[in-house]
Lab assay of single mutants.
Amino acid sequence: PEDEKKAKEALKRANGDEDKAKEILRKLGVDPDRAEELLRRLR
């Protein structure tokens, strides 16, 4: 869904750096736990 698209985009923008991607997602208003879960799934 929408969050998943955001997560993929964030990872791309962060050049695969998960911590940076998490930060980006947090700024986009995605719940930190949700962000973590999404990134884990994309790994």
Rank of each mutant, 00 (worst) to 15 (best):
P1T: 14
P1G: 13
P1Y: 13
P1Q: 14
P1L: 14
P1R: 13
P1K: 14
P1F: 15
P1S: 15
P1H: 13
E2S: 12
E2G: 11
E2R: 07
E2L: 10
E2Q: 09
E2I: 10
E2K: 07
E2A: 11
E2W: 10
D3M: 11
D3L: 13
D3K: 03
D3P: 04
D3E: 12
D3R: 04
D3W: 14
D3I: 10
D3Y: 08
D3S: 06
E4M: 15
E4G: 06
E4R: 09
E4T: 10
E4K: 08
E4L: 15
E4I: 15
E4F: 15
E4Y: 15
K5N: 11
K5W: 12
K5M: 13
K5G: 08
K5S: 09
K5V: 12
K5H: 12
K5F: 11
K5C: 06
K5D: 11
K5A: 13
K6F: 11
K6I: 14
K6A: 12
K6W: 15
K6V: 12
A7G: 04
A7D: 01
A7T: 06
A7S: 03
A7M: 05
A7L: 08
A7K: 01
A7V: 12
K8I: 14
K8R: 14
K8D: 06
K8N: 07
K8Y: 09
K8T: 07
K8P: 01
K8W: 10
K8Q: 09
K8L: 14
E9A: 09
E9F: 03
E9D: 12
E9L: 06
E9I: 10
E9S: 07
E9T: 06
E9W: 06
E9Q: 08
A10V: 04
A10Y: 00
A10W: 00
A10M: 02
A10L: 03
A10D: 01
A10T: 02
A10F: 00
L11K: 03
L11I: 08
L11Q: 02
L11R: 02
L11P: 01
L11T: 02
L11D: 01
L11W: 07
L11A: 02
L11V: 05
K12H: 12
K12A: 14
K12G: 07
K12V: 12
K12F: 08
K12W: 07
K12E: 13
K12T: 10
K12N: 10
R13C: 10
R13H: 11
R13I: 14
R13E: 15
R13P: 01
R13Y: 10
R13A: 15
R13N: 11
A14Y: 04
A14S: 09
A14L: 02
A14N: 02
A14T: 07
A14G: 04
A14E: 03
A14M: 05
A14K: 01
A14W: 03
N15E: 09
N15H: 13
N15G: 12
N15Y: 09
N15K: 11
N15L: 11
N15P: 01
N15T: 04
N15Q: 10
N15M: 12
G16L: 04
G16D: 04
G16A: 03
G16S: 03
G16T: 02
G16Q: 04
D17F: 05
D17M: 05
D17L: 05
D17A: 04
D17P: 01
D17S: 07
D17G: 02
D17Q: 06
D17V: 06
D17N: 12
E18P: 12
E18V: 14
E18W: 15
E18K: 11
E18I: 15
E18D: 06
E18M: 15
E18A: 10
E18N: 08
D19P: 06
D19S: 14
D19I: 13
D19N: 13
D19F: 11
D19R: 13
D19H: 12
D19V: 15
D19A: 14
D19Q: 13
D19L: 13
D19C: 12
K20F: 10
K20M: 13
K20H: 08
K20P: 01
K20T: 09
K20V: 14
K20I: 14
K20N: 06
K20S: 07
K20W: 09
A21M: 04
A21D: 00
A21G: 02
A21W: 03
A21R: 00
A21L: 05
A21I: 04
A21K: 01
A21P: 00
A21Q: 02
A21T: 03
A21N: 00
K22S: 06
K22Q: 06
K22P: 00
K22H: 06
K22V: 08
K22N: 06
K22W: 07
K22D: 02
K22I: 11
K22F: 11
K22M: 13
K22G: 05
E23W: 02
E23L: 05
E23R: 07
E23G: 06
E23Y: 02
E23S: 07
E23P: 00
E23M: 05
E23H: 06
I24H: 05
I24Y: 08
I24A: 05
I24P: 00
I24E: 08
I24D: 05
I24C: 05
I24L: 09
I24Q: 04
I24S: 03
I24F: 07
I24R: 03
L25M: 07
L25G: 00
L25R: 00
L25V: 00
L25Y: 00
L25Q: 00
L25S: 00
L25T: 00
L25K: 00
L25W: 00
L25A: 01
L25F: 01
R26A: 13
R26I: 15
R26T: 15
R26G: 10
R26V: 15
R26N: 09
R26L: 15
R26K: 14
R26M: 15
R26C: 06
K27C: 09
K27F: 08
K27T: 12
K27I: 10
K27R: 12
K27E: 14
K27H: 12
L28F: 06
L28M: 15
L28N: 08
L28G: 07
L28T: 06
L28W: 11
L28A: 11
L28S: 08
L28P: 00
L28K: 05
G29Q: 03
G29V: 01
G29W: 00
G29R: 02
G29N: 05
G29T: 00
G29D: 04
G29I: 03
G29M: 02
G29A: 03
G29E: 02
V30G: 01
V30A: 02
V30I: 15
V30Q: 02
V30M: 15
V30N: 01
V30L: 10
V30S: 01
V30F: 15
V30T: 04
D31N: 10
D31F: 05
D31M: 09
D31E: 11
D31Y: 05
D31A: 12
D31P: 14
D31G: 08
D31H: 12
D31T: 10
D31I: 04
P32W: 08
P32Y: 10
P32D: 12
P32A: 13
P32Q: 10
P32R: 09
P32L: 12
P32S: 12
P32C: 08
P32K: 12
P32G: 11
D33R: 12
D33T: 12
D33V: 12
D33P: 05
D33S: 12
D33A: 14
D33H: 11
D33L: 12
R34V: 15
R34C: 09
R34A: 11
R34D: 10
R34L: 13
R34P: 02
A35S: 06
A35D: 01
A35V: 12
A35L: 08
A35H: 03
A35N: 01
A35M: 08
A35F: 09
A35G: 04
A35T: 04
A35E: 01
A35P: 00
E36I: 05
E36Q: 04
E36V: 04
E36N: 08
E36K: 06
E36W: 03
E36A: 07
E37H: 05
E37A: 05
E37P: 01
E37G: 04
E37I: 06
E37Q: 07
E37V: 05
E37F: 02
E37D: 10
E37R: 04
E37Y: 03
L38Q: 03
L38I: 12
L38H: 03
L38Y: 03
L38P: 00
L39S: 00
L39G: 00
L39K: 00
L39N: 01
L39Q: 00
L39C: 03
L39W: 00
R40S: 13
R40G: 13
R40F: 03
R40H: 13
R40I: 11
R40W: 03
R41M: 11
R41T: 07
R41V: 06
R41A: 11
R41P: 02
R41E: 14
R41G: 11
L42V: 08
L42E: 05
L42F: 06
L42G: 03
L42S: 04
L42A: 07
L42R: 02
L42K: 02
R43F: 06
R43T: 13
R43V: 15
R43L: 15
R43H: 11
R43D: 10
R43P: 05
R43Y: 05
